[in-house]
Protein backbone atom coordinates (compact mmCIF):
# COMPACT_ATOMS: atom_id res chain seq x y z
CA UNK A 1 0.00 0.00 0.00
CA UNK A 2 1.45 3.31 -1.11
CA UNK A 3 1.37 6.53 0.80
CA UNK A 4 -1.78 8.66 0.64
CA UNK A 5 -2.00 12.38 1.18
CA UNK A 6 -5.15 12.69 3.26
CA UNK A 7 -3.54 11.93 6.67
CA UNK A 8 -1.05 14.75 6.09
CA UNK A 9 -3.77 17.13 5.03
CA UNK A 10 -5.90 16.20 8.02
CA UNK A 11 -2.98 16.71 10.35
CA UNK A 12 -2.31 20.11 8.76
CA UNK A 13 -5.98 21.04 9.17
CA UNK A 14 -5.89 20.07 12.86
CA UNK A 15 -2.76 22.10 13.47
CA UNK A 16 -4.16 25.04 11.56
CA UNK A 17 -7.37 25.05 13.57
CA UNK A 18 -5.50 24.81 16.86
CA UNK A 19 -3.27 27.68 15.76
CA UNK A 20 -6.31 29.72 14.76
CA UNK A 21 -7.92 29.09 18.11
CA UNK A 22 -4.77 30.20 19.88
CA UNK A 23 -4.35 33.29 17.73
CA UNK A 24 -7.87 34.46 18.37
CA UNK A 25 -8.24 33.53 22.03
CA UNK A 26 -4.92 34.14 23.78
CA UNK A 27 -4.34 37.44 25.48
CA UNK A 28 -0.58 37.51 25.41
CA UNK A 29 0.74 38.97 22.18
CA UNK A 30 3.70 36.58 22.24
CA UNK A 31 1.39 33.59 22.28
CA UNK A 32 -0.65 35.09 19.44
CA UNK A 33 2.53 35.34 17.40
CA UNK A 34 3.41 31.73 18.30
CA UNK A 35 -0.01 30.57 17.18
CA UNK A 36 0.43 32.35 13.87
CA UNK A 37 3.72 30.49 13.41
CA UNK A 38 1.87 27.26 14.05
CA UNK A 39 -0.65 28.13 11.35
CA UNK A 40 2.13 28.91 8.90
CA UNK A 41 3.71 25.57 9.70
CA UNK A 42 0.49 23.78 8.99
CA UNK A 43 0.47 25.45 5.57
CA UNK A 44 4.08 24.37 5.07
CA UNK A 45 3.16 20.80 5.82
CA UNK A 46 0.52 20.97 3.12
CA UNK A 47 3.01 22.35 0.62
CA UNK A 48 5.57 19.64 1.28
CA UNK A 49 2.96 16.93 1.27
CA UNK A 50 1.64 18.06 -2.08
CA UNK A 51 5.20 18.23 -3.37
CA UNK A 52 5.47 14.50 -2.92
CA UNK A 53 1.95 13.15 -3.03
CA UNK A 54 0.05 15.68 -5.08
CA UNK A 55 -1.30 15.28 -8.57
CA UNK A 56 1.76 16.93 -10.12
CA UNK A 57 4.58 16.22 -7.67
CA UNK A 58 7.71 18.28 -8.05
CA UNK A 59 10.30 20.07 -6.01
CA UNK A 60 8.51 23.39 -6.48
CA UNK A 61 6.39 22.72 -3.40
CA UNK A 62 9.47 22.36 -1.27
CA UNK A 63 10.96 25.54 -2.64
CA UNK A 64 7.73 27.30 -1.95
CA UNK A 65 7.79 26.11 1.64
CA UNK A 66 11.34 27.42 1.93
CA UNK A 67 10.09 30.84 0.90
CA UNK A 68 7.25 30.57 3.39
CA UNK A 69 9.70 29.79 6.16
CA UNK A 70 11.72 32.83 5.18
CA UNK A 71 8.67 35.07 5.24
CA UNK A 72 7.65 33.57 8.57
CA UNK A 73 11.04 34.38 9.99
CA UNK A 74 10.83 37.96 8.76
CA UNK A 75 7.31 38.27 10.09
CA UNK A 76 8.32 36.97 13.48
CA UNK A 77 11.18 39.44 13.67
CA UNK A 78 9.05 42.44 12.72
CA UNK A 79 6.20 41.22 14.93
CA UNK A 80 8.46 40.95 17.98
CA UNK A 81 9.88 44.41 17.22
CA UNK A 82 6.42 45.96 17.04
CA UNK A 83 5.45 44.12 20.18
CA UNK A 84 8.42 45.51 22.08
CA UNK A 85 7.62 49.00 20.88
CA UNK A 86 4.02 48.65 21.94
CA UNK A 87 5.06 47.30 25.28
CA UNK A 88 7.37 50.23 25.77
CA UNK A 89 4.57 52.70 24.99
CA UNK A 90 1.65 51.02 26.71
CA UNK A 91 3.30 48.96 29.41
CA UNK A 92 1.46 45.80 28.52
CA UNK A 93 1.57 42.98 26.02
CA UNK A 94 -2.10 42.17 26.42
CA UNK A 95 -3.88 42.21 23.06
CA UNK A 96 -7.22 42.79 24.73
CA UNK A 97 -6.04 46.18 25.81
CA UNK A 98 -4.83 47.07 22.34
CA UNK A 99 -8.07 48.57 21.12
CA UNK A 100 -6.87 51.81 19.52
CA UNK A 101 -8.75 50.82 16.35
CA UNK A 102 -11.97 51.57 18.19
CA UNK A 103 -11.44 55.30 17.82
Amino acid sequence: MGMVISPYLTLAAILFCIGLYGALSKKSAIVVLLSIELMLNAANLNLVAFAKLGVNPSLTGQIFSLFTITVAAAEAAVGIAILILLFRNKGTADVVQMDTMKQ
Binding site: V95, V96, T100, M101, K102
Partner: peptide
Protein backbone atom coordinates in the same frame (compact mmCIF):
# COMPACT_ATOMS: atom_id res chain seq x y z
CA UNK B 1 -18.84 44.72 17.26
CA UNK B 2 -16.48 47.59 16.65
CA UNK B 3 -14.58 47.18 19.87
CA UNK B 4 -11.16 47.74 18.36
CA UNK B 5 -9.96 44.25 19.20
CA UNK B 6 -8.31 42.41 16.38
CA UNK B 7 -9.26 39.08 17.82
CA UNK B 8 -12.96 39.87 17.66
CA UNK B 9 -12.56 40.98 14.09
CA UNK B 10 -10.74 37.76 13.34
CA UNK B 11 -13.52 35.78 14.91
Amino acid sequence: LQNGQVQSYGL
